[in-house]
């Protein structure tokens, strides 16, 4: 049976008069992709911030595999197994893909206060990093500096960095953003294969990808989850069509 990996319980966050997150509860279970959609300004970024650790909720709690992480730092959450990617690629551009991915492996294998042994010869670091890259079909680019990669490849590196942490849950913030149809299709395929090992909380604007990938969808509008269910349910929910899908493609 599936078990709950990540759970948000009654999160609240207010900025001045704006209720950015209003009593949001979500669950992410093993083997699934749970998509979070919502129009601009719905409070998606604020919610992600509260899961990832750069925003503290006013009320409510976040649990990862049964451990409360509400008050933990970004790094602590990552070490506990929360991998994330960013809406706008956040990589060290002058460094090789490998060096970016190795960081997560290094964090996993104890502290970084090792001053002597060169990382270049450290198979303990290299092998898991290569493995993560292979999963994203990027091992041929391992030694290329990130600044020479295409936009699509960077998105894949982002996911590979998260995978290097051997995460229990992945938090992907618009991984398809800026990708053409081809890149989008490729990443969709990779993520589909991935979800059996790591459950994914997917924040995405690309509706085709969402409807293809997501086992469950939650719709966020004005800080609240207004609908929740599988893609069929969401497509037909009149409130969702009204608030978000509009006349588009539903």
């Amino acid at each position: 049976m599936s078990e709950t990996i990540l759970s948000l319980n009654h999160l609240h966050k207010q900025f001045g008069a704006l209720q950015a997150t209003n009593d949001v509860s979500l669950e992410l279970q093993t083997g699934e992709i749970h998509a979070l959609i919502g129009p601009n300004g719905a409070g998606k970024s604020t919610l992600i911030g509260q899961i990832a650790g750069n925003i503290r909720p006013d009320k409510g709690s976040v649990y990862l595999s049964g451990t409360e992480i509400t008050g933990m730092s970004i790094a602590q959450r990552a070490r506990l197994g929360l991998g994330r990617s960013f809406q706008v690629s956040s990589l060290a551009e002058p460094l090789s893909v490998m060096r970016n991915v190795m960081m997560g492996v290094q964090a996993l294998q104890s502290h970084s206060f090792r001053f002597w042994k060169p990382v270049a010869q450290d198979q303990q670091l290299l092998e898991p990093a290569v493995e993560a890259l292979e999963r994203m079909q990027l091992s041929h680019r391992a030694w290329t500096p990130v600044c020479e990669l295409s936009h699509g490849e960077r998105r894949q590196v982002e996911v590979a960095c998260a995978l290097a942490l051997k995460p229990r849950a992945l938090l992907l913030d618009e991984p398809m953003a800026g990708l053409g149809p081809e890149g989008s299709a490729k990443l969709t395929e990779l993520l589909e294969a991935l979800k059996l090992e790591v459950p994914i909380l997917l924040i995405e604007h690309d509706m085709d990808a969402v409807f293809r990938l997501a086992d469950r969808i939650s719709v966020l509008v004005s800080g609240s989850v207004i609908a929740h269910g599988d893609s069929q349910t969401i497509r037909q929910d009149p409130r969702v069509r009204d608030a978000y899908l509009g006349d588009a493609d539903a």
Partner: peptide
């Protein structure tokens, strides 16, 4: 940010 996200 990348360093923190990697767990360090």
């Amino acid at each position: 940010v990348r360093l923190a996200t990697a767990g360090i």
